[in-house]
């Protein structure tokens, strides 16, 4: 994509909108996850929403610019790994209890503690794992593809 400051770069409006959209996109993502078990949407869709916001930032500011504006992006690989680990643990912890994998707790017909519409159960933590992994992977991919001139393969 185009670097900031180049003569044919995106307009100021695009840059501002890109930065402003990041907050709402995260809120939408959280909403998608929280309401996931009762309404449309799940961890994957939420991850894609955040990923799109990051991609918009990369388009508007360039990979390096986005990284400077949002230093937190640097942790994307770690976020992806953490998401994979969370998903793995949420899916496989029943093995330690001698149950089949993906036997979520609380089980069927047990009481679930809910905070609003969000239910505190391992299926949701698995969904959160997916969300983190998708966000991390998409951010890494956008970063890799948005900076064509950073390193020439020799």
């Amino acid at each position: 994509m185009t670097a900031p400051g180049s003569s044919r770069g995106p307009t100021v409006i695009v840059r501002v909108v890109a930065r402003l959209l990041l907050g709402p996109s995260v809120v939408v993502a959280v909403a998608l996850i929280v309401k996931g078990y009762t309404k449309v949407g799940d961890g994957f869709a939420a991850g894609m929403v955040v990923g799109l916001a990051v991609a918009l930032n990369a388009v508007a500011l360039g990979a390096r610019g986005a990284e400077e504006a949002l230093p937190v992006l640097r942790h994307a690989p770690r976020v992806a790994a953490a998401g994979a680990a969370l998903a793995l643990v949420s899916g496989f912890f029943p093995l330690a209890l001698d149950e089949p994998v993906f036997s979520h707790r609380p089980g069927p017909d047990e009481k679930v503690v809910s905070v609003g519409t969000a239910e505190l159960m391992t299926a949701v933590s698995f969904d959160v794992g997916i969300f983190l992994l998708v966000v991390g992977v998409v951010t890494v991919l956008v970063h890799q593809l948005a900076e064509p001139d950073q390193e020439h393969p020799t």
Binding site: T38, G83, V101, F102, I130
Partner: peptide
């Protein structure tokens, strides 16, 4: 404990498939 079938399938019924996909 869900009302959205698709999400429950992804996270619970076919969770292992989802894990493979991610």
């Amino acid at each position: 404990h869900g009302q959205d079938v698709v999400t429950v399938i992804v996270a619970d019924f076919r969770g292992l498939d989802t894990l493979g996909e991610i």
